[in-house]
């Protein structure tokens, strides 16, 4: 709790920094490779079983503290399963079992000392289909801060809601209709609303499970722009079907195939010089 309040205070102090929306996104291939930074997650021999059936096999990888890490691979390869390991969402699926170790900042998130409910406040998640609650735009964003008691007063809550919507690039579009239902927004706006909702509890990490797959190209471009801005503040893991998207938004890319982590490297390397034949076949469109 102490930790979270500290994060929140830090968050408030960052308020002055408005993201630069007009910034032109550079293609990843031309951007410099991710600098060697601190490790956020260390995964050791992670395996996931559904009803005893292995869906993910002995995954070892380090997720960096900053930047965007993309998880790619054909359907059923285990990339979404792997993503849900980081916020223990697999716990909510009956008969799912996770083995191995996932260290977040050096601490095993599957140890008994970790409360999965609090972990999920630190590791936010955005889903494939926009899922705003059938509440007002305001109440959607205020949901997390309310249940975690982050805002002692109405004014604080107003601040958090505004801050989160600004950061998600939605404030200008909705500031005059915060009382309208979140479901009245367009698909792209809804997806940015749920990102604002996730940001509102000041997470350290944001997991995105194919966040653009239900959006049209314009909304997708808008979302990728947003991801690019958010990566300055948050460690982002994104599952995507679109290799072009992985190339555009990520600095690191992990390729999964049939439950195996086949290759994990800088995005530039994966897309220009893959070491494994399976990776090459996938990114060149020969399998998939």
């Amino acid at each position: 709790m102490v930790n979270m309040n500290a994060a929140h205070t830090k968050y408030i102090s960052d308020l002055g920094l408005t993201p630069n929306m007009g910034e032109v996104i550079e293609m990843m291939a031309s951007a410099p490779a991710a600098e060697t930074t601190q490790v956020k997650f260390e995964c050791r021999d992670v395996e996931v079983f559904y009803s005893g059936k292995r869906a993910l096999r002995g995954v070892n990888m380090d997720v960096p503290d900053s930047g965007v890490t993309a998880l790619i691979g054909p359907s059923g390869c285990g990339k979404s399963t792997f993503l849900r390991v980081f916020n223990r969402m697999n716990d909510t699926i009956p008969n799912a079992r996770v083995t191995g170790q996932i260290l977040m900042d050096g601490q095993d998130i599957y140890s008994k000392d970790i409360d999965p409910v609090l972990l999920r406040a630190r590791v936010g998640m955005v889903f494939q289909k926009p899922n705003p609650f059938p509440k007002s735009i305001y109440d959607n964003v205020a949901y997390g801060p309310r249940i975690h008691g982050l805002a002692p007063q109405k004014k604080d809550l107003d601040n958090i809601v505004e801050r989160s919507l600004v950061r998600a690039g939605l404030w200008d579009e909705v500031k005059d209709r915060l009382k309208e239902p979140g479901t009245s927004l367009s698909g792209g706006q809804q997806q940015r609303l749920v990102i604002a909702r996730a940001i509102a509890v000041s997470p350290e990490v944001i997991l995105m499970d194919e966040p653009a797959s239900a959006l049209d190209p314009i909304a997708t471009a808008r979302l990728e722009e947003l991801i690019d801005e958010l990566k300055e503040k948050y460690c982002i893991l994104i599952v995507t079907h679109s290799m072009a998207q992985a190339a555009r938004v990520s600095q690191k890319t992990a390729f999964f195939h049939l439950g195996d982590l086949v290759e994990y490297d800088d995005t530039q390397t994966i897309f220009t010089n893959p070491k494994d034949q399976r990776t090459q076949d996938y990114i060149t469109g020969r399998t998939g």
Binding site: T92, V117, R120, G124, K129, Y143, A198
Partner: peptide
């Protein structure tokens, strides 16, 4: 189910999800 997932992923407990999201819906 996406509403349940959305609430749980924000760090809500099962009963909070029930009373604050599922029940109103």
């Amino acid at each position: 189910q996406t509403l349940r997932d959305g609430s749980l992923a924000l760090g809500a407990t099962k009963s909070e999800t029930m009373t604050k999201v599922i029940f109103p819906a």
